[in-house]
Structure formats: C-alpha cells, structure tokens
Design a protein around this nucleic acid. Structure first.
Length: 539
DNA sequence: ACGTGATGACTCC
DNA sequence: TGGAGTCCCTCACG
C-alpha cells in the first residue's frame, strides 16, 4: 500500500457524504465536497448582457401579454401576439447581429475547442513502465484473517522507507544514459560538440527602445514547443551557446531533459535523464565549463552533468532536502547551497566526494532562494519566509549569522530573490503578496531602499509552482515573469515597472509558464509549464 | 486508460 | 482559531 495516499483518503471523501469545509464558519452548514473548479478565463466568456437589453425584453414581454389578451387575428391567421412575437424575434436577431454576437459566439466555440498540446518531444509511450502485478484476490475471498496495518508516527509519515518511487539514487557518479531512447542508450556524439561550442558573443546592453524592438521580434512557432520532461517543470535553463538553442528542464520526479531545438536525436531533439528521484528545484549550466550542468534536488543531491565524461557527478549529497543554489565564483567551482531548514553550505567542487562544506544555520525558517552578487562575490542574498537579507560570506557564523543588509516590506512569504546580473545594484524579489519588488543595493546599508513595487498576480493555486521574476542576464534592469492571467503570457518588465513586452500566442501558449528564463547571449526566452513542455520565443 | 494542467488542500502555529 | 505557509500530496476532464 502506498503510504503517500493515506493522507488523501479520508472517509469523508466518499461521494455524497457531507463534510465540514475548512475556512467556513463553525456555525455554517455542512456541504458536499467541493468539486475542483475549472478555470474559465473571463475574456473567453460571452459578454454579460447589458441591463438595458434585459429591461427592453421585460417591457416587450409585458406588451406581448397585454396584446395577447386582445386575441386579434389577421389575414394570415396569425394573432397579433404571434405577429408581435415574430417581430420581436426579428428585432432581437437584428440587434444581436449588430453587436456581432453571433460572430463572437462562433469565435468562442472555436477558441474553447480543445487545443491540441504539442506532440513534439517526449512521446506518450515513454511514460513510466508499469510493473505487471499478479492478479489479486482479497484476503476476505481467500477466507484469511485481515492484516492489521499501523500507520507510522505522524511526524515520520513522509520519511517512510520502502520501495517507493522516491528512493534516492545511489551516491557517486551516475552514467549519463538517455532513458527515452529505445536502444544503445548512448549520448549522440553531436551533443558534446554542441555543448562545447560557446562563442563568447557578448552583446552590449541596448538602449531601452532598441531592447523593446528586439523583444518585439521574438516569435514562437510550432517547432518551438516540445515536451522535454514527463512531469511538472520545476526548473529550466538555457545553455550559453549562441549558435543553437539548447535547453535543460528539471521536473517533479527527478528527471532532467535536454532539448536542442532543431536536432533530430532522441525525440525531436529531446534527451531524457534521471539523475534524481525527487523535484529538481534548481538547474544551471556552468558559466566556465559549458559542458557541465548543475542540478539540485529535493532528494538531497546536487549533481553535475558532464557531457564530456558522460556522467552525472555527485557534487554534494545530504540526507535532507536541498532547495536552491548559486555559483559563488566565476569558475563555478564553488557554490552556495541552501536547504529546506535554512542552512547554507559552501560547497567546493575541487574536492569531490568530500566537498568542503560549512554550515551556517541562518535561521530555522525555510530558505527559498539564494543569489550571489555578480561582482562582490562575498555577498549573497537569501529569501526565507518573509525576510530577505544580504549576508557577507566572510562573517558567517555557525549559528545566527548577522545579515549585512535587510530588504524589508514583504507581507507574505517570498519565493525568490536575485541580484541584478551586471552590477548587483538591484535585487528583485517575488512575493506571495502579489508584488514584485526591486531594491537598490548599490550601497549596502542596513536597510536597502525599495525602488519599485510592481503588482503581479502570484496566486498560482495548486499544481502550479509559484512564479518568480528573474533578470535578463544580458540587460541590467529588465526582468521576466510568467502570468496566470488570461490570455496566458510571459511578461518582460523594466525595473521601473513599465511593461516592455508580453509574449502571447493563442494556439501555442495557453498554459501557465511558472518557470521562465532569458537566454544568456541570444534573443530568446523560455517558459515551462506543468505538463513538462517548454515554450520558446526567439528571433 | 491516460495525458493534461490547474485559483486546492493540507499543516502549522 | 484562522491566517499563513507549503507544494513533500490530487483529480476532473476529455
């Protein structure tokens, strides 16, 4: 029996049984279990009828009744009431035509027709192979005594060992074998060439109008959508290569997909790997070694995919969940790693296996995000619950380290915080209170001044991970974020709050892109959704 | 039967 | 107690 399900099988959930809904006042009545509402975008609903129309109809009805009573007939054998009814119908039709309601209705039918998700990328047949179990017969039918099951203690419910899907991968290097290729699970040789290719095409920053026009030229097309992982995308990144678009995505069950747009290996250029056993919370290509991709997982492992060696190396491995990391040095060999319990470890990859690590329990609160200052790399910013603080790595203590600077003003929990990519003079935070905030961190005082607070709906609900605003690494002061509003879109803001671009597409982009990223060298962005698909807009 | 995708459901303090 | 915090877990629909 799958212990994970225990929690979700309360007896009250049986159909038709009244349950007490949480959040409803104690005195309120019991109601049936709520059905999960399907979200219908307001923009697609037919426009509400105007009040004056209703009034008109009411008046017409009144007149009709009055006339009906007269029972007058004409030469066609129709009563006055019938005639008036026909006239009303004619007038209504004319009115509805005049306001294009029929056209709108047709459009609505077309637009609400089920959009077919892209069939590019991973094929359906690659869903996990199900274990074939022998036919079962209940103990009752076998006339046997029922087994007695005991639940593990509540506090231990989630760490029940067993043959579950989340069994952690063995420590040490894992061979890099694509699991979506039928046979000869070897890497396509072109992948190494592709990964090694990094022409340092450093584009200078553009002025804002030039930048906007560049964004305006970026398009999505059918070949720029593909299923890259099987489950909900938790993290994604672009490879720095400027000659081809190579992307990585990490999913909820520990898989990492590599997608090279336009290649024909794997499934439409997608290769799928399984270096972890639980959500891949953070992914980043090494900026110094372009054949390496670092991936971090809730299963407590941090691995380095190395295409040259064709392995997922073990970089850091602990018994509890890891949440986030960032590179600490330009050579990307040292990392700041944050875990679920507010600890930060400094990991040095030059001593593999026994990575040098030092623990600094910043706070018992859950840590959400770390980001290292791009120039003064002794500073890093940390988000945990409602606090965002900047720490100096040189003055970290084993416990209760004092931050250098605080970024105040958040009223709910914070999902991300990032130093601006070129100067570090800004920090952007995303908060559950529906605000994206930009702080001035050019001079690290005890409290960083808030420059701008941008209103943005962060309420993604279940199944969709929280939105995070991230900077464009090419353009200081511009950031990208997904959106839950309809039509679905990916938006680019200037730090001043000005909306620079809204990437939309009726047919190809119709799901929430909870993970978004800019390409480090090219004019391209990506968005990842909850069914493992990546969407690319590029020039 | 299974892929899809989301304004839910649960726990903690 | 209910608001806040979490996403480790779900499930209706086509």
């Amino acid at each position: 029996m799958d212990s994970r399900r225990l929690k979700h099988q309360p007896a009250e959930k049986q159909e038709g049984t009244p349950i007490q809904i949480k959040g409803v006042r104690k005195s309120s009545r019991t109601v049936l279990p709520p059905k999960r509402l399907r979200y219908y975008p307001a923009a697609l609903l037919p426009p509400r009828r105007q009040r004056n129309i209703e009034n008109d109809e009411d008046e017409q009805d009144d007149v009709s009744v009055a006339e009906n009573n007269k029972e007058i007939t004409n030469d066609k054998g129709l009563s006055a009431y019938e005639l008036e009814r026909l006239e009303n119908i004619r007038q209504n039709q004319a009115f509805l035509s005049a306001i294009n309601l029929f056209q709108a209705s047709d459009e609505l039918k077309r637009s609400s027709a089920k959009l077919q998700p892209s069939q590019r990328g991973l094929a359906r047949s690659h869903s996990e192979v199900k274990e074939v179990l022998p036919p079962r017969k209940s103990l009752r039918l076998q006339n046997k005594q029922a087994e007695v099951w005991t639940l593990p203690p509540e506090s231990n419910r989630w760490s029940v060992p067993g043959p579950d899907l989340w069994a952690k991968k063995p420590a040490g290097p894992l061979s890099m074998e694509p699991i979506n290729m039928a046979e000869a699970s070897k890497l396509p040789p072109q992948l190494l060439r592709l990964c090694s290719d990094v022409s340092p095409k450093q584009m200078g920053e553009l002025n804002l109008s030039k930048y906007c026009s560049t964004l305006g030229k970026m398009r999505i097309s059918e070949d720029k959508v593909a299923k890259v992982v099987m489950d909900h995308i938790f993290s994604a990144a672009f490879h720095p290569s400027s000659t081809s678009l190579l992307m990585a995505a990490g999913d909820q069950k520990g898989k990492v997909g590599l997608w090279s747009l336009g290649e024909d290996w794997g499934n439409d250029g997608v290769l799928l790997f399984e270096p972890h056993s639980r959500s891949v919370g953070c992914l980043a290509f090494s900026r110094a070694h372009s054949t390496q991709l670092l991936s971090l997982s809730y299963d407590g492992s941090l691995r380095c995919m190395d295409v040259e060696k064709a392995v997922f190396d073990d970089v850091y491995n602990v018994e509890y969940g890891l949440k986030t990391f960032d590179f600490l040095s330009h050579d990307c060999l040292t990392l700041v790693v944050g875990d679920w319990y507010g600890n930060v470890a400094i990991v040095d990859r030059r001593t593999p296996g026994t990575s040098h690590e030092s623990f600094h329990s910043l706070d018992p609160k859950v840590l959400r995000c770390v980001s290292v200052h791009p120039l003064q790399q002794q500073y890093f910013v940390v988000a945990k619950n409602r606090e965002v603080s900047i720490y100096d790595i040189r003055s970290l203590k084993k416990n209760e380290s004092q931050p250098v600077c605080q970024l105040n003003g958040h009223s709910l929990s914070i999902s991300s915080c990032f130093f601006s990519p070129c100067t570090g003079n800004r920090v952007v935070t995303s908060c559950k209170d529906n605000r994206i905030r930009v702080y001035d961190t050019s001079s690290l005082m005890s409290e960083a001044p808030l420059l701008k607070s941008i209103s943005h709906n962060m309420n993604t609900g279940c199944g969709v991970s929280t939105l995070s605003a991230v900077w464009d690494p090419k353009q200081e002061n511009c950031l990208i974020v997904g959106s839950v509003s309809w039509p679905r879109k990916v938006q680019v803001f200037h730090e001043s709050g000005r909306l620079l671009q809204s990437f939309e597409d009726d047919e190809l982009l119709y799901t929430v892109q909870s993970v978004t990223a800019f390409h480090p060298t090219r004019n391209a962005i990506l968005g990842g959704n909850s069914s493992g698909r990546l969407h690319v807009f590029s020039d």
